[in-house]
Amino acid sequence: MIIYFPCVTTFVQKVSASVALCSALVGCGGSSGTRPAAPEEPPAVASLSPARLPPTMAPGPGGLTPVFERGPATADKTVALTFDADMTADQGPRAASGERFDNPALIDTLRRLKVDATVFMTGRWAEEYPDQARAIGNDPRFEVANHSYSHHAFKAPCYGLPALGRQGMAADVRRAFDAFRTVGVRNVVPYFRFPGGCYDDDALRALAAAKVTAVQWDVVGGDAFATDADAVAEQVLTGVRPGSLVVLHCTRSAAPVTEQAIRRVVPELRERGYRFVKVSELMAAARGT
């Protein structure tokens, strides 16, 4: 599904307020789609040959940033698992005191289970964990997308997140891409996820200069602050349909049971005939419909 004029409502599913709040606070079209002009592309993407360029969606009317929420509901059972690697610009002291915003066990499990996935990474996370960011970004099983540099809101109010001014939004996104390049992250795709999932038309207009496709979801994993891995797994397994895009998190301190939930989700979905793909493959399928 491709949306060009989204309203301020961003969550597609009706989930409980507590799940929506937790999900927001943390994280670890048609055939007319066009590619951004090379000078505006993220540095790690601009150097790719045309044959290797990730699919994107064409801007909406008036140049609004396009929004992608799920793939086509076709007979081909594909699902994209996405993981937000969240860290706000001001959480350095918490990391220095021992709080873990990473989740290497989750990444290891995805590798062991041979699951392709997309990691939406903040620039601040990449700077805090450069070795992990580089390892994820150099692994062909994963692609790295942009979750902003600061994890500040692009629309206020947004679950208590500090808000960016309109004039700083595109710069914040570019700063994250710069952070990826600095630490050596490859396999970068020109996709962006709004912190907290909060946006409006003003944000889409301000973000247009960054030349990205915004990526939301149709299944909320509910793993943020959860302590029951089976409850998280059930929420994912109940919500997934062909073409679904699932939002989960790659942050050990705030989403401690995600890895355990994935160990149940993956084999059960495979038993149902599902295949795990990256967002870029899901988007390519949508462009072909």
Rank of each mutant, 00 (worst) to 15 (best):
V188R: 02
R186P: 03
D172H: 14
D108T: 04
E128T: 01
A135H: 01
A176K: 04
V183C: 09
E127S: 03
A170P: 06
Y191V: 08
V173Q: 02
D178M: 10
N138V: 02
D139Y: 08
H152N: 07
E128C: 06
E99F: 12
R111L: 01
H151T: 03
C158F: 08
R134I: 03
G165I: 00
A171W: 13
A179L: 11
Y191A: 09
G165Y: 00
A176T: 15
Y199F: 15
Q167W: 04
P157A: 00
I107H: 06
D139L: 10
D178H: 09
D116C: 04
Q167A: 07
A170V: 14
A117S: 12
D108E: 15
D178S: 13
H152G: 10
P130G: 10
G160L: 05
F101V: 13
R111E: 06
F120K: 01
N103E: 15
P130T: 14
D172M: 14
Q167C: 00
Q167L: 02
Y149C: 02
R166L: 07
L106T: 07
R193C: 06
D102L: 00
A126H: 04
K155R: 15
A133P: 09
N146C: 11
D102A: 10
T122C: 12
E143I: 04
L113G: 07
V185P: 06
N146L: 14
L106Q: 05
N103R: 06
A133L: 11
N103W: 03
A133C: 13
A117I: 12
E99D: 15
V115W: 00
D116W: 00
R100H: 11
A179W: 07
S150E: 08
H151D: 06
K155T: 13
Y129S: 04
F101A: 13
Q167H: 01
A145S: 14
V183E: 13
